[in-house]
Deep mutational scan, measured.
Amino acid sequence: MVYKIRDKETGKVYEVTIDEETNEITVYDVKTGKPVKTVNMTIEELKEAGYEVEPV
């Protein structure tokens, strides 16, 4: 599923895909559409880390 996340401190917005089964999150560069990095976190962990998470 695709989400937009926003860093509450910097205001930067990222587009991510989240595999609900493995909790693998792939972060994409919004301008190029290319993957930047992959992390292993849940949506709740993202929120605790200071991100706003919205489904696209």
Rank of each mutant, 00 (worst) to 15 (best):
P35W: 13
I5G: 00
K34D: 08
Y3W: 10
G33H: 09
M41H: 04
Y3T: 04
E54T: 09
E15L: 15
P55K: 09
T10K: 02
Y28S: 04
E20A: 12
E24N: 10
P55F: 11
V56N: 08
T26D: 01
E24T: 15
G11I: 00
E52S: 07
D19T: 05
T22K: 15
E44V: 08
K8C: 10
Y28K: 06
V36K: 04
M1W: 10
K34G: 04
G11D: 04
T22S: 09
K31Y: 14
M41T: 06
T32I: 03
K12F: 11
T32D: 07
K4G: 01
V36S: 05
G33N: 06
T17E: 06
N40S: 10
G50W: 04
V56L: 12
K8S: 06
M41F: 09
G11L: 03
T17G: 04
N23F: 07
E15A: 11
K37I: 14
I25W: 04
E24V: 14
V27A: 05
G33F: 04
I43P: 02
K8R: 11
E20I: 13
I25M: 13
K34T: 09
T10Q: 01
A49K: 09
I25E: 00
L46N: 00
K37S: 08
T10C: 10
D19S: 08
E24F: 11
V27F: 15
E52I: 09
D19P: 00
V30I: 14
K37C: 15
V13T: 09
R6L: 09
T26N: 04
E15H: 15
G33S: 05
V13G: 02
E54Y: 14
G50M: 04
N40E: 07
E45Y: 04
I5K: 00
T17D: 03
E45K: 07
D7A: 03
V27K: 01
T10N: 06
K31S: 14
G33D: 03
V2N: 11
D29K: 00
V39N: 04
K37L: 14
I5F: 05
K8W: 06
T38C: 13
T10R: 02
V2Q: 11
T42M: 02
I18H: 11
T17W: 14
T10Y: 02
G33A: 04
E21N: 12
P35Q: 07
P35T: 07
V13I: 12
V56P: 08
E44A: 12
G11T: 01
Y28R: 09
D7N: 13
E21I: 14
T10M: 02
D7K: 03
E48H: 11
I18T: 04
K47L: 14
K37M: 15
E21P: 03
I18E: 02
E54V: 11
V39I: 14
P35C: 08
P55A: 13
V36Y: 07
K47W: 09
E45A: 11
L46T: 00
I43W: 09
G50H: 04
I18S: 02
E45L: 06
E20R: 12
V16C: 15
I25L: 11
Y28H: 08
K4T: 10
Y51F: 12
P35E: 08
E9V: 14
V27L: 15
T17L: 09
I43K: 04
E52G: 05
Y3S: 02
I18Q: 03
A49W: 12
T26Q: 05
T26G: 01
A49D: 06
K4R: 15
I43S: 03
Y14R: 00
T22D: 03
K31R: 07
M1N: 10
D29Y: 02
E21R: 11
L46E: 00
K31H: 15
E52P: 02
V53I: 11
Y3F: 11
T32R: 01
L46V: 07
K34E: 12
A49R: 09
T22N: 13
V2W: 15
T38Q: 07
P55E: 11
E52L: 06
K12S: 09
E21S: 13
E48S: 12
K8P: 13
K4P: 01
I25P: 00
T38M: 09
T32M: 04
E15K: 12
K47E: 09
I5N: 00
T10H: 03
I25T: 04
E54H: 09
K4S: 07
V16W: 04
N23I: 04
K47H: 07
K4V: 14
A49H: 11
E24S: 14
Y3I: 08
A49G: 07
V30R: 08
Y28D: 00
I43N: 01
A49Y: 10
L46S: 00
A49E: 08
T10L: 02
E20F: 14
V27S: 03
V53G: 02
K4Q: 12
V16I: 14
T26A: 03
D19F: 06
V39M: 14
E15F: 15
Y28T: 07
E48K: 12
V53D: 02
E48L: 12
G33Y: 04
V13H: 06
E54S: 10
P35N: 04
I5H: 00
V16P: 00
T38A: 05
K34S: 08
T42K: 05
V30H: 12
N40G: 07
Y3P: 00
E45P: 00
E44W: 08
V30Q: 12
M1D: 07
E48Y: 08
K47R: 13
E21F: 11
L46K: 00
K37F: 15
K8T: 08
E52C: 06
T26K: 07
D19K: 08
G11S: 03
V53Q: 03
T26L: 06
P55Q: 11
D29Q: 02
T17Y: 11
V2S: 10
V39C: 15
Y3A: 04
E44M: 10
E45V: 04
Y51L: 03
G50R: 05
T17N: 06
K31E: 15
D29M: 02
E15V: 15
N40R: 12
G11H: 04
T17Q: 09
D29P: 01
V36R: 03
V2Y: 14
G50C: 06
